[in-house]
Design a protein around this nucleic acid. Structure first.
Lengths: 210, 210
DNA sequence: TGACACATACCAACTGGTTGGTATGGTTTG
DNA sequence: CAAACCATACCAACCAGTTGGTATGTGTCA
């Protein structure tokens, strides 16, 4: 809870190194296949340090989702599309940004920790499942704000809901990752997200023509 | 290779029982978390039988994807939408059918083995990854046939490709499963797939208005 | 027809290695 | 000093895979 209170400027603490290793390894190998020893090795700490900071592997899993949400939300907060005036431009800009995030990255680097862990642990660990959904929901809420504003301005009578569409954007992105992993081809994910872009455009064009 | 040559009418062989158990358990607990002992217990056979039929756990994983593809493709072949005359009606009917498949089912029962395994093993097992994509690709090709026919009749000038859209339908469905698992709510998946339905409608309505 | 050869299907018990987790002791820091 | 931090050594449970064996065919040839 009192994170990063100890090392103001120096290198990250063991806890943060473990969390960083978790973001990498879990996306690469999956949660179950990533052992505590793997995490300790990658973080350069021992098992004693691990269980000093986390009561269990599951607790690290939950903490990793929160760490992920913190790190990624910072990246989105600094993206260019945030400065667009028209919320519809912001929304389209967000979708394009999601495509940009794929460029030059390998699959483990550009895919989502939350979707990976949720898919694997939804039954066996409610704590991790809920933590994953909370992270997704947090992000989707930000997207829903843009959508709600764009809807108010451009399509106030539309039948679809802003939150539902926001969740849909996340579903498409998660599904794009699944298919990209299966084909072992990041470009496939970009192709899928471009369909999402077209859908958003059609939703608003369609509304305008009403 | 010479499957079910031995028991013409009686109960399924150990091999098929193991594959059936794999469809259930892997969707429920994931591939790594499903041990060989788990599979043997569920199938009512011993470990010796397991390794008589499969050289390794990975080989069972590959066989399970093929078994899954066989079973599910039969279900789609018998669905009502196949008899619709207009290929666009078929396509919409297919999407609606995917929603129907969710009703009254728990998450492990209605989600896709291929997406689950691909997400988990895409890095650690190329054999399983490729087998998953083959299954997805096989199904997507069937969907692409409907889309291509619908496009030829209703939107011949459309800029999007039939195969790309077919893959997109699968991406949406996979992503819907991921989010549904995270929220632990099958209804969310149905909501996502209804967005897909709207997208398809917009694509063809839009083309008609050109 | 009967006997031998061989393959398939399956089982119980075991093995070496890995797993998440613990017990304990030492070191740094406020 | 006391608390936070971290290392070493260790454990019982579990893992995929192996072993040596039995039971039941199935094809072949005298």
């Amino acid at each position: 809870m009192n994170e990063t209170l100890r090392t103001p400027k120096s290198e990250p603490s063991a806890r943060e190194r473990l969390l960083g290793a978790a973001l990498q390894l879990v996306r690469q190998k999956g949660y179950d296949a990533t052992s505590v020893d793997d995490l300790c090795r990658a973080a350069g700490v021992t098992k004693g340090a691990f269980f000093h900071h986390f009561a269990s592997k599951e607790e690290l899993g939950v903490a990793a989702t929160q760490f992920w949400t913190k790190v990624t939300s910072q990246a989105f907060a600094q993206a260019d599309y945030q400065h667009f005036e028209d919320p519809l431009d912001q929304l389209i800009g967000y979708v394009d940004f999601r495509v940009q995030l794929l460029e030059g990255r390998s699959l483990p680097e550009c895919t989502c920790l939350l979707g990976t862990m949720a898919q694997e642990k939804f039954e066996s660990s409610p704590a991790i499942r809920d933590a994953c959904f909370e992270g997704i929901h947090t992000h989707a809420t930000e997207v829903a704000k843009m959508i709600a504003a764009a809807k108010a301005r451009h399509a106030p009578e539309a039948s679809w809901g802003a939150e539902s569409l926001a969740l849909y954007t996340q579903a498409v992105i998660q599904g794009a990752f699944v298919l990209a992993k299966a084909k072992n081809d990041v470009a496939l994910a970009a192709d899928m997200i471009r369909h999402l872009r077209r859908y958003v455009e059609l939703l608003f064009h369609h509304a305008k023509q009403d």
